[in-house]
Design a protein around this nucleic acid. Sequence first.
DNA 1: CGGTGCGTTGACATTTCTCAACTGTTGTGG
DNA 2: CCACAACAGTTGAGAAATGTCAACGCACCG
Lengths: 233, 233
Amino acid sequence: VTQPAPDLTRSLAGLPHFRSLGEESLGRVAACSRLVQLKAREVLFHEGDVCDAFYAVLSGALRVARVTVDGREQVLHHVTPGRSFAEVACLHLGRFPATATAESATQVVRVSGRGFRELLVEDPAVAPAVIGSLSQWLHSLVDRIDLLQTDSAGARLARYVLQLPAKEQDGALAVQLPVAKKTLAAELSITPETLSRLLARWRRLGLVETEGAVLRLLDARALEAVAADHEAG
Amino acid sequence: VTQPAPDLTRSLAGLPHFRSLGEESLGRVAACSRLVQLKAREVLFHEGDVCDAFYAVLSGALRVARVTVDGREQVLHHVTPGRSFAEVACLHLGRFPATATAESATQVVRVSGRGFRELLVEDPAVAPAVIGSLSQWLHSLVDRIDLLQTDSAGARLARYVLQLPAKEQDGALAVQLPVAKKTLAAELSITPETLSRLLARWRRLGLVETEGAVLRLLDARALEAVAADHEAG
DNA sequence: CGGTGCGTTGACATTTCTCAACTGTTGTGG
DNA sequence: CCACAACAGTTGAGAAATGTCAACGCACCG
């Protein structure tokens, strides 16, 4: 599954946080990297595995999750193209705190922790890239906490939907749910049943139309009210 | 409130993430730092303020929180001595995403963002310290998410209590709640009433005894079961 | 063509919140 | 120094939200 890649440098340059690195630094990072191809549902690493690398997604998507004491899957994050992850576990020579699974066919770059740690002290340009990446993680986690502390399930869903990339379509906004509804429910800390019922209610109230994983937002203003917890019905 | 401090270097050396810095680097950090004394309930900065510094707590404690749309206080974090914060907002030249308030008389170090950013590129020893600090933040946020995704309120409270520093007392463990119960409730995303009722139930079931902000854990095993969501009653 | 699993819907149980009243403590101003 | 206001904490009763269990249709995959 692992293969040497001649144009790894170019792939790395496409990652937001490595973009700031010069040609030379990029080459060094590439020298301790490998391209990894994952099939859908393939596991990149398991919770508890010793961590000797960090990763960046080039295409596809990964789900980072752990299994809770009561057996349910707890989604920590979806990693989309351009984002790197496991830097912390890697830099601290720890173990993975969660399991990473490909959601579809996925290309990731595996950067050797050993080589990268050397780079970090030798090449002063690398640290800012890492700091930038960690900052972005912090930001997304704070957003996540923000979302989870929103106590009404409807408000959580509305906020989630509204921050999804949307495109115009027949004068209404349309968004595509990036993951299965079951997975989305887990991410929002609600049950699939509740998710289904919320969408059904919004449909009844004329806020949205649904067509599989595509939502047409008919009344964005009302959805924003729901997101702000001013409830709808 | 701000005062120059001759032994700032020594104070900085007491911070976990600056401990790894050499004498010289520490001196440079100290050169762009100031000691700030806060009285209880004094505000260090407000949400939305332009951020031109980051901070580290020497003694006392700060509450970092924002006000939600529906007017409630949403506690993002308690910063205890030894921890630094606002690095991200500072390094990215942004605005503070939340308000920081002293919970009691508190000493903090204010590190000028401008000076520190210069240090970051000039002194290769500084970056690892920042990375370490950010990593710790990431870790605590992931723990927080873990806690929030625990859906039963009882389990959340039990997990919170069990990870508090405890000390032996008459053969039972005793923990001190570090914040007012009202604040704790907000942090656990429950209402003060629910918190009160949970403690009352545990008291009835003989799991704990309470005396103001001190909890004596009479049956830690049972509490662990509650934390794992195997419920008690 | 049969199985497996997602999504939906219904009925019901349970948790948690809301509102309200009351107590005890703290802090402040007269 | 006291009286009073403000607020944290507790408890009760009822309402609302969400979870649980169960059944069913439907699509996708072998």
